[in-house]
């Protein structure tokens, strides 16, 4: 009878190449990636040939999700704090210290001013499930969005100016001069592909009422076709 060779002990595999590969990928992702921000809504955006970058420094973002709910966000801790304080004063909503801190930390908000303290006391998951039909009220009778945008615009202008001066001072003499336009507030509209356009239009009209006519739509880029 043929003898069967029983394997002795557990076979050991040389794992070094696998480890190499894994760490190579880790390094790549660490360096190349930017983190996804935790937005209260996910919206699928339409595509266009637009190729401008989203302004990161001075961004005022209004999101309209597919149900037509409106969300507001802007960049800059300082700006956010000031905007919130002014909004709270205008609508006489008492906000605790924690509420303000939370507001500065998170991204978009989507509720009326009266709901804000409750909204801010929730965690990220809770905010995603927050029952709201309209998000930030933006109809002509009760337009809180207009105030948000207005305050954010004003604060962002100041903040941008300050940042421009600071960064210009830091620059060496030989460096190319910074463009002041890059530090002006940019108004970006992130509208879901299947949102009713009437809702988006309503937001656009709000911007236009404030005489902010240069709007940017967030789109995913597609290659421009050649027109003959």
């Amino acid at each position: 009878m043929a003898e069967i060779n029983k394997p002795k002990g557990s076979p050991s595999i040389d794992m070094t190449p696998m480890v190499d590969l894994a760490f190579l990928l880790v390094t790549f992702f660490m360096l190349a990636a930017t983190f996804r921000t935790d937005e209260p809504v996910e919206v699928s955006i339409p595509s266009s040939i637009g190729d401008k970058e989203i302004p990161e420094k001075t961004l005022v973002l209004v999101t309209v999700d597919k149900g037509g709910r409106v969300f507001f966000s802007c960049t800059g801790e300082e700006v956010r704090k000031k905007v919130l304080t002014q909004m709270a004063a205008k609508y006489k909503v008492p906000l605790s210290e924690d509420n303000v801190k939370e507001f500065v930390r998170i991204t978009s908000i989507g509720c009326s001013m009266s709901q804000l303290p409750q909204y801010l006391s929730l965690d990220g998951e809770g905010r995603k499930k927050f029952p709201t039909e309209t998000g930030i009220p933006s109809d002509s009778l009760h337009n809180e969005l207009k105030d948000w945008i207005n305050f954010a615009n004003r604060e962002m202008l100041d903040y941008g100016k300050k940042m421009f001066e600071e960064e210009s001072a830091k620059q060496g003499k030989n460096a190319a001069p910074l463009k002041p336009d890059d530090y002006k507030p940019k108004f970006v509209l992130k509208a879901a592909m299947d949102a009713e356009y009437v809702r988006v239009k309503n937001v656009i009209e709000t911007f236009r009422d404030l005489n902010l006519n240069n709007l940017n739509f967030v789109t995913s880029q597609e290659a421009a076709p050649v027109v003959k």
């Binding site: 660490m30 990636a33 970058e53 989203i54 789109t219």
Partner: peptide, 21 residues
């Protein structure tokens, strides 16, 4: 890192509206 990162940053398309003045 794979799950938390985003690569393709969305771009914007600007549109200038006529002033309401």
């Amino acid at each position: 890192f794979v799950l938390t990162s985003t690569f393709a940053k969305p771009k914007v398309m600007s549109l200038v509206y006529p002033a309401k003045d």
